[in-house]
Amino acid sequence: MNKLDSLESQSVYILREAYREFKSLAMLWSIGKDSTVLLWLSRKAFFGHVPFPLVHIDTSYKIPEMIQYRDELARKWKLNMVFGQNTKALTEKKTFPEGAIDRIACCRALKSEALKHTLAGDWPRFRMNHATGQYELDKNTEPYTGVIVGARADEEGSRSKERYFSPRDKNNEWDIGDQPPELWNQFKTDFAPGTHVRIHPLLDWTELNVWEYIEREKIPMTKLYFDQGDGKRYRSLGCFPCTFSVESKAKTVAEIVEELRSGKFANIAERSGRAQDKEDGGGLETLRRDGYM
């Protein structure tokens, strides 16, 4: 089997284990390339269907094209689309772009906090009504006990230490010093009430693998990843105040693959355009211990 086939097969296996074992399962969709590949892999695993909700944490500072692309795909693929956000921090303007707090604290409020409460179901969730195309308050407030996330081991230090199935306690915290054993594709699928499990089907994929797979499968991507003529593109998507575009003339998936394989980005880390990483000496560890994806 070639590399992409075996990566795909393992991810599909993990997704199916998760679907069988977790009654209340959701997938986090950040609209970026990794979680979009994850979404595609779900359609592979479940033969064209996506049998769980896709949850997006909307910080309101996402690049507008991202939201547009999210809703387009949600309509086209009939996805069970849900979003949540930290409305309080936003209305009180307690964010980094408003100058109220630093980057890390902002990530914590708009992402980690919003994620925690959206997963727990104690903050409102908004769900797309496919009849009207509008988002409505979701009646389902059940906590999600299995959460599928597109983290990759090659992104940064703490992710390189992840398990495929990684338990989080009541406060969403990750006990990185005492992770469960994981052998022979037997995963941690039993968990105490109140806790949940993060599921990482993409751990073994590199950024290059992700783009090679997008190329092979012709997965639609938001145009933000491509040079629109100004010699700039995004390599990693996030909130616009903290994510910067890179100089690149790559206009197609094939050109991105080439750029990563032997071109200008072959040796440059993907998250080098993310400002919040630099503020944390622990390489995102601090944020991730508290539940950041």
């Binding site: 081991a153 940064e156 230090g157 230490k161 010093g177 992770q179 622990g282 390489g283 560890e285």
Partner: peptide, 15 residues
């Protein structure tokens, strides 16, 4: 990469 690993000079979990 973990803070505890660096401060104790020991590997805690596989990378």
């Amino acid at each position: 990469a973990l803070k505890d690993e660096q401060s104790q000079g020991i590997t805690i979990d596989t990378a």
